[in-house]
Simulated scan of single mutants.
Amino acid sequence: MKTRRDTQPITMVYDIPSLLPPGTTPVSRLYYEDWNIKVVDREKSGCDNYLSPNRRDFYKIMFMTSGTGLKTMGNYNYYINERTILFLHPNEIVCWRNTTPTVGGGIFCMFKKRYLDQHPSLKLIIDRYKFFTEKKILRVSEQSAKMIHSLLSQMKIESETAGELAEEAMQAYVQLILVESLKGTDYAPTSEITNDYRHVYDFFELLEKETNLANLDNPIRMRTAKEYAQKLNLNPNYLNGLVKKHTGQPISTLIKNRLLEESKALLVQTDWTLQEISQIIGFADQPNFSQFFKKYVGVTPNEFRRSPISPDYEGKVQSSEESIVV
């Protein structure tokens, strides 16, 4: 029997309203901040139904202390409740649906990929025990849950002090959390995803593959719903209907938004010319790309490159940052 959460559209990462002026909505609001590791209170940040198909540049440990939800990762659904810890890889395509009317309690810990390179001992334990790859969702004992919550709370205090050795101390806490999590047992999925959602997942995986690897030698080639449907051996109208059912948006809008997000990333992260970025995004010439970008972002690519973030950026988005990047 279908429940309300099965048909209720979920929020896309880039659909959440921005508090910033036009042209200052970044690919991921946390992406532009100079941080290596961050701890966020889940209850204060809020957590709506969402689908996060586009790449992130950080790992995320999510610890639930109360509330419930349905997490879709890969081909499986997981029923998540208290005393559950999740390890989300930057490349993971995830979907979250709340199954309770209020946001549950818990704490998020996020750290950048470069943070692992700076701390080989942390990377070693992650690789050795296959956290974020094979170990993704674990249910821990009540005693371990208390210990993990205490460690995360201490990390949050450490992050707020921002002392010279804060990041050093925090990586040690993360290692302790990983070790404590090993005392848990693997969390079995409750069910496989439906065929409908499998097609939606395949579409987003293909969209991410097409845009994620884009560069000067490998420009984006697929830009229409028809091209994606053909690649997936599906009828375009059928695929579009499934995607719209689950996200509330047609494929054309999702492709457009993903192209804009990748454009913003290239403008900020590279020194490539506008002509080069235009070709990477799939435009024949720069004027058409600039017109496309300004129409939907509100400023020209050059203006965005010079000032992607407003002066009041940090203060304005602090209260909602986690809902943008989950």
Rank of each mutant, 00 (worst) to 15 (best):
Ile10Met: 11
Met12Cys: 11
Met12Arg: 10
Tyr14Pro: 01
Ser18Asn: 05
Pro26Ala: 05
Val27Ser: 14
Ser28Cys: 13
Tyr31Lys: 14
Tyr32Trp: 10
Asn36Ala: 09
Asn36His: 14
Val39Trp: 05
Glu43Gly: 00
Asp48Gln: 11
Tyr50Gln: 09
Asn54Gln: 13
Phe58Ser: 02
Phe58Lys: 03
Tyr59Thr: 03
Met64Ser: 10
Ser66Pro: 01
Thr68Leu: 05
Leu70Tyr: 08
Thr72Trp: 06
Asn77Val: 04
Tyr79Pro: 01
Thr84His: 04
Thr84Phe: 03
Phe87Leu: 00
Pro90Ser: 01
Asn91Phe: 10
Asn91Asp: 15
Glu92His: 10
Ile93Pro: 04
Val94Met: 12
Pro101Ala: 09
Pro101Gly: 06
Gly106Pro: 00
Tyr115Asp: 02
Gln118Phe: 07
Lys130Trp: 07
Phe132Lys: 02
Glu142Ser: 11
Met147Gly: 07
Ile148Arg: 03
His149Gln: 14
Leu151Pro: 01
Glu160Ser: 14
Glu160Leu: 15
Gly163Phe: 10
Glu164Asn: 11
Glu164Phe: 13
Ala166Pro: 01
Glu167Ile: 08
Glu168Gly: 07
Tyr173Thr: 04
Gln175Lys: 13
Leu176Phe: 08
Ile177Met: 01
Ser181Asp: 04
Gly184Lys: 06
Ile193Leu: 05
Thr194Met: 04
Arg198Ile: 08
Arg198Leu: 14
Phe203Ser: 04
Leu206Phe: 07
Glu208Ile: 06
Leu213Ser: 12
Asn215Tyr: 10
Pro219Leu: 05
Lys226Ile: 09
Ala229Trp: 00
Gln230Arg: 12
Tyr238Ile: 09
Leu239Thr: 00
Gly241Phe: 01
Glu262Lys: 12
Glu262Gly: 00
Ser263Gly: 06
Thr273Met: 02
Ile277Asn: 02
Gln279Lys: 15
Ile281Glu: 06
Phe283Pro: 02
Phe283Ala: 04
Ala284Tyr: 12
Asp285Trp: 04
Ser290Leu: 00
Phe293Ser: 04
Lys295Ser: 13
Val297Thr: 09
Thr300Arg: 03
Arg305Tyr: 02
Ser307Glu: 15
Pro311Leu: 07
Asp312Val: 11
Tyr313His: 09
Tyr313Asn: 05
Val325Asn: 09
Val325Ser: 07
